[in-house]
Design a protein around this nucleic acid. Sequence first.
RNA 1: CGGGGUGUAGCGCAGCUUGGUUAGCGCGCCUGCUUUGGGAGCAGGAGGCCGGGAGUUCGAAUCUCCCCACCCCGACCA
Length: 587
Amino acid sequence: MLRMSTLFLRTLRDDPADAEVPSHRLLVRAGYIRRAAPGGFSWLPLGWIVFRNVERIIREEMDAAGFQEVHFPALLPKEPYEASGRWVDYGDNMFRLHDRHGAEMLLAPTHEEMFTLLVKSLYGSYKDLPLCIYQIQTKYRDEARPRAGLLRGREFVMKDSYSFDVDDAGLQRSYDRHREAYIRTFERLGLPVVIVSAMSGAMGGAASEEFLTPLDVGEDTYVRCTSCDFAANTEAVAVPVPDSVPLDGLPDAVVHDTPNTPTIQTLVDHLDERGVPRHGGGSWTAADTLKNVVVKLRHPDGTVEPLAIGVPGDREVDLKRLEAQVSPAEVSPFEEADFARYPTLVKGYIGPGALGSAGTSGIRFLLDPRIVEGTRWVTGANEEGRHVVDLTMGRDFTGDGMIEAAEVLGGDPCPNCGAELEIARGIEMGHIFQLGRIYAEALDLKVQDEAGKQVTVTMGSYGIGVSRAVAALAETNHDELGLIWPREVAPADVHLVIAGKEGGPQRPAAERLATEMEAAGLRVLFDDREGVSPGVRFKDAELIGVPTIVVCGRGIDDGVVELKDRRSGEREDVPIGDVVARLTTTA
RNA sequence: CGGGGUGUAGCGCAGCUUGGUUAGCGCGCCUGCUUUGGGAGCAGGAGGCCGGGAGUUCGAAUCUCCCCACCCCGACCA
């Protein structure tokens, strides 16, 4: 039994000034967590109970799926991460430190390398596989901008599993087992999730799906189809490629003087004002233009390469999509100094003539998939104040390849069924990923197959954010008064409140009831504080968010207490002798 | 990484422009009395390296510089 008279808890009347999102605000106000470090939180007793409940559910579901729990250090030497390439690839997001001898170490962001090496050190035969092992562990990522409390910290707890199989079919089975286990886990946690595909189909076979909880404060943008069940991270949406158009009989490209038209809008307005004829008639739109964006790619080895991307002018280049495509390279803007190095690029009037391996600048030029052979575009003529009209793909220019970097807009066609897509926001709660043989190859994890031949093991990695799940639960389960926990993760089943004069019959009755409820297996949070006014007790009960509130108050003379459902707000007087039966049957 | 905002008691804030006794208010906390079904009343208290450092000054919460932390927005649009 948790007695509030001695519980290490202080609720706050005011919202903490540094908390913006509801989960952060309420978890701090209700005395569940406290900020302790940039992006790091301390857990108070109530918070730790909830945390352990979430952790327990995840652990039970992993165990039920037949996965085995292990535990690694968070503090690791750099060598395994050097071998995999992640010591370089992870960049600034990895916490690095030195020991007293000057050896470089890290605080692990995830543990693929360590799991791989552990399996390598123990297993050598196909008979040992398949294997799925997991841990629940504190992870570290030096986020550029920790925010939203527990939702995105620099230290957080994550369940990460890894599967090891001899062949692709085995990997698919391990992946499917995780997928099923995750669906059950989120169901039990009471967290709504949508499963979105997370890797571009064009990027190859490696399957990867994210479990997103739809939340406006989430940091991931995804799309879902308004008609079929397609859902995908925006990074992973592949644009349907239109049919190409025969080149015969298309008009020649013509260069026009277009003074003072450095932006798409000014260009479109100018063409209309000057009455430049548009193929198919009608007035010019941004979608008729080809926007050529130049950026710099910084590769992990430090080399920098310019890259030009051609997208329809009614769309921006989506930085996240672009980075997903060019990963692990990082993208940065093309600056004045860069333009100075490429005199053939005329800012505001860049056209395909200057781009690509055949262009005057030689800069690599990748095109949006919509730009297919036979499509005609208005685009820069590589001269100040001049654009070219009806520049035709496949005849007048080509790119060095395709890239999925244009933004995805609501109303875009679904790649699955063609209906309209809509944009939504969510937060990543889980991620399942067929890694394949990347890590096994880098760290040389092989087993003997039936023929006695050495084969490289194929792996999957699977994560669930444990501390993030607590925040997401708070985010999806609250009202203006406070938190409302789903029963299985709640810090208690019943919040018992004494509301009556000190020295009256309420306290002894409540004491008896508390003991009785506890004996019946109910977890009781008992507000037995003295000298606290009823208003405070009610406010605290609502803030803390235990699913059922029992008030032992003025009805006591009639032998009844009030049962209140925190979520619905419904109240009901129940004879004190029936309370336990009521709560144990409905719970 | 860029821009903006904010750091003063456990929490929320005022004071800073125009430097000057002992730094203030509300909540919370302690003591006493009253009160007890919606964040109670009265009286009396405790609690501060004014984010840190360096400077200017006879004197700094207040002015200058540097650093740190937190919050928000942005990140290419040629």
